[in-house]
Amino acid sequence: MLSWLVDPWTWGAWMWRGMLSVTLVAVACAVLGVFLYLRRMSLVADALAHVALPGIVAAFLISGSLSAPVMLFGAALTGLLATVGIETLSRRPNIRPDAAIGIVFTAMFAAGVILLSTRVQDAHIDTHCLLFGDVLGVSDRSIWLLAFVTPLVLVLVAVFYRWLSASSFDPGFAKSLGIPVAAVHYGLMTAVSLTTVASFEAVGAILVIALIIVPAATAHRLSDRLHLMLAFAVAHGVVSATVGMYVAIWIDSSAAGAIVVTGGLIYAAVFLFGPRHGLVFSPGRHCGQGLGPEASSINALEG
């Protein structure tokens, strides 16, 4: 009866390789996604994921190599370029920030697609794989890259947890404490770029966005504290990665797509039936409602 759960593992190494890589991708994306989401930068993540493509392709064209450091460097560079470009454009009075995002990443992505389709046809870059991922065929390089990037992301987030949490919640106050808010911002952006590159082979440039945004959005509706939100987001990522892999195997479809759809369904379930903020079973308690009479706490203040 459980054979459909167990069998895929016996069909060859690709199953555990695939499972390992999507889990690593899901964990790194979920953790970074929480901070991006809370900083209202979900769509910057969208942009960064897209611009990693021209970064990788350009790095390949210039160096002729597809080694991990070259790819990471290329993507980090275009990521930084896009971040700076978006911020510079947003500062001009006749461009709104959302339009700035849209302009920068679509243009850079288009350039990447064109380079990919004209210049690197016979290299070992598979267009379809870069865009939509190929979990079951991930290379050793990609697994090693993930095995390096995901722990790195976790360690960095743990080390800079106070800076990240304080500057995400209240950047003005964080600055007054002497926290280097701008450095934290660019550090986070770089981490997102690196994670995107590491995730490319497994889930592709476009669907990685879902693994960044959806877990955080789900977790936000379930948790009142940041570390719980991180835990819920990671759980969401891992569960949808696992379930999505099985679904992809059963119906013979894109694994990345199946993972994203599973994650989306979990989000929809939490949105509708979540214990506290769900639309359907919400017991009438919403944000912003005062709790109890103001007077009681004032009494405590004076007493």
Binding site: Y161, S168, D170, G172, L177, I179
Partner: peptide, 29 residues
């Protein structure tokens, strides 16, 4: 003490967590 409108009040953080942030100035990372 910034203006109240400067933060997202749906941020997943409790009252005590916010107050504890005041100590970050002395505790560093």
């Amino acid at each position: 003490v910034p203006q109240r409108g400067s933060v997202d009040w749906d941020f997943p953080v409790t009252v005590r967590d916010v107050v504890a942030q005041g100590r970050y100035a002395h505790l560093g990372l």
